[in-house]
Design a protein around this nucleic acid. Sequence first.
DNA 1: ATGCTTATACGATAAGCATCGTAGTACGGC
DNA 2: GCCGTACTACGATGCTTATCGTATAAGCAT
Lengths: 123, 123
Amino acid sequence: MSPSSRSASPSQPRTLAHPERDEISLEAVLHALSDPVRLQVVRYLAGLAEGEGAACSAIELVVSKSTGTHHFRVLREAGLISQVYRGTAKLNALRRADLDALFPGLLDAVLGADAARRERDVS
Amino acid sequence: MSPSSRSASPSQPRTLAHPERDEISLEAVLHALSDPVRLQVVRYLAGLAEGEGAACSAIELVVSKSTGTHHFRVLREAGLISQVYRGTAKLNALRRADLDALFPGLLDAVLGADAARRERDVS
DNA sequence: ATGCTTATACGATAAGCATCGTAGTACGGC
DNA sequence: GCCGTACTACGATGCTTATCGTATAAGCAT
């Protein structure tokens, strides 16, 4: 089969499938967040300015390149991040608006709890 | 087999291991919540009065008995619920105080999002 | 074109997990 | 004592996932 999901349109060179807002399920989101590597990615992206994105390589992960790609894909398919090709790089951004609309307070709670734990561990 | 395999501590007949508050990890909690059956249990227990518990059999799950036991165990070991033997039954209760202290807003966000989705699905 | 950077696809592997049935233990009542 | 209720432990099974290395494609610069 052709690379990814390029069904009929030949002019769309490299677009990736994202779930619509109402296709995002709570279970999938929680599962996506339950992995330390993916949590690290989300935490990083949450620290960026609104609408800004970061390349995959901008985040230093403790896993191999291909494993990193796998985790980015899980995050995208769960609806947590959006991925857009831009040149050779791929810009990842948190879908904060969608997540806040669907699960109000969830993202902040996860990020807040995580930040608090980090401070505790340092002390 | 030997009827009494309780040789060491005679005073505490049937107690189950629970993680301390500071042993509860965010990843484990999120993972425990990412299963629909376990989410159903948490939702049920959240509807009970503070400090009240429910027997395993009080919650009708769509899985077999032994699978249900497995899920209760996952929830307990992740620190989400407490389990105390009382007669032949086992009382399950949500560890709301611990969870709210560790991850403020998380539980409410999960339960609220879930309730909202349910209402949406009905309409 | 050649090469470099970035990220993906593919195939493989090992571990984890949800599920079940069956057998068994603990407790309370008869 | 004996039986029923409530839950558990064990072993099995099939699916999912996290991990990797290697090969490959797409874009940019020279």
